[in-house]
Nucleic acid binder design. Structure first.
Lengths: 237, 237
DNA sequence: TGACTTTTCTGACGAACCGTCAATAATGTT
DNA sequence: AACATTATTGACGGTTCGTCAGAAAAGTCA
């Protein structure tokens, strides 16, 4: 009873690992159930016993990716002290996630294509929304702490979550553009990641988030922090 | 000679119009060459005479969409006076583009999926890059004017284009998240568009872009401006 | 006009993929 | 060992893609 079940769970992970490898190396269209079955040396029906369709596989991978990022958020928030530094650390984690764990970011983006999201199961959709909610809570929590500590005063009519949404958009938007716009350099954007860090820093200044620091100071300790985040990110899988 | 050629060109536009309608109503997977042929009442081969594959159709539509936005940028820049207001007007145009012309924004996003971009023809890719470059030039031009007029001082090491990239990321990111995240409201983001306008305004303040205005003032004249942009946007097609 | 070349159009075709399901094999139970 | 349950298989029908030889239409010229 239990051995067989363990075998099946084991195989499920193998399928996901193989699927992720194919997705990263050759893209979404290269992922087919026939191929998955062939490379796993199982019949197609067996794969369908695990996942009702291709989209569900991508959704499962995306959920794992989102969870990885959530963990990175938790780590980042722990590694830094002071509300503003903790917020900066979150941004740093996002940068690392998108570059160092780019296979995760890529899968996460696939989920944003309506076709995949809509065909995935409702239970998976719920889990994904919960994971997003928890990530948001981590960051919104930092903002609330900042308010409580007197480091930041939110304008009236802007919730902590809406405040976070700005930084989320800035960061997500930049990574999406970087990964999908083939020639940013050609249109004059030499160092997109650094530029966005500068914008994030400026945006915090705009909101008067204390304590103020020069951008150079911020960059200096961010570099150290990044090492810590990267280490954690790679070791837990 | 010429009549037949005109007929063919005419038909190409009909194909694109039909394709866009299907894409908007039923999404990317619903668009098939067989269906296109059937609804056009032509054989499939004829459709393939116009476009070598499905991706090329989407790319053609995306190019049209990008050009529409470029025109909106030009209009927006004309309708406002003063560098900061002109920049704000561009942001306003983006909002209108993503909401009012959401079918265009949706197609533009499809292009960002690697599969489509890679299968589209090189000539089309070049055209798209040119169009993006011209859009960027419009906005970077506003930034340079602002510098020349003394309204804005860019930090050293940040080019005008990299400066624009921040606003681009903020705006694009928010619209992408809004259109793909099913339940922003559930995670505490009631009014995402207004939030991002606030962030954009704050970011400009952070860079010290003159003349300063309260957010309420900005919102007031932006509402008027929006009407003008919407009018233009809808009338030229 | 009629015989011709050239261009455009057609739809049957092979290949790839999806998801199903009756039949078969493996495993568990008594 | 006989039976029940669960897991696995791969052939199948259906859909889409992109091709291409041959049919139809348009253009050319005596």
């Amino acid at each position: 009873m239990t051995r067989k079940q363990r075998e099946i769970q084991e195989r499920e992970q193998q399928i996901l690992a193989l699927a992720r490898a194919i997705l990263v190396r050759e893209g979404y269209q290269a992922l087919s159930m026939d191929r998955l079955a062939a490379e796993m040396e199982y019949a197609k029906g067996t794969i369908y016993n695990h996942f009702p369709n291709k989209e569900e596989i991508v959704a499962a991978l995306a959920l794992k990716s989102l969870e990885k990022r959530r963990k990175m958020f938790e780590r980042a928030a722990l590694l830094a002290q002071g509300s503003r530094k903790r917020m900066t650390a979150i941004g740093c984690a996002c940068d690392i996630y998108a570059s160092e764990c780019c296979e995760h970011f890529a899968v996460e983006q696939m989920l944003r294509i309506s076709a995949i999201w809509e065909k995935s199961s409702q239970t998976r959709q719920k889990l994904i929304q919960q994971c997003e909610f928890r990530s948001m809570s981590i960051v919104a929590g930092i903002v609330r702490d900042a308010q409580a500590a007197g480091d930041l005063k939110l304008p009236v009519g802007l919730s902590a979550e809406e405040f976070v949404f700005g930084f989320w958009s800035l960061t997500y938007g930049s990574h999406a553009l970087i990964s999908s716009s083939p020639s940013l350099a050609e249109i004059g954007i030499e160092n997109p990641v650094r530029s966005i860090r500068y914008h994030g820093w400026t945006l915090m200044n705009g909101f008067g988030w204390q304590p103020l620091e020069t951008f150079e100071q911020t960059e200096a300790w961010t570099a150290e922090l990044a090492e810590g985040i990267v280490k954690h990110a790679h070791e837990d899988e």
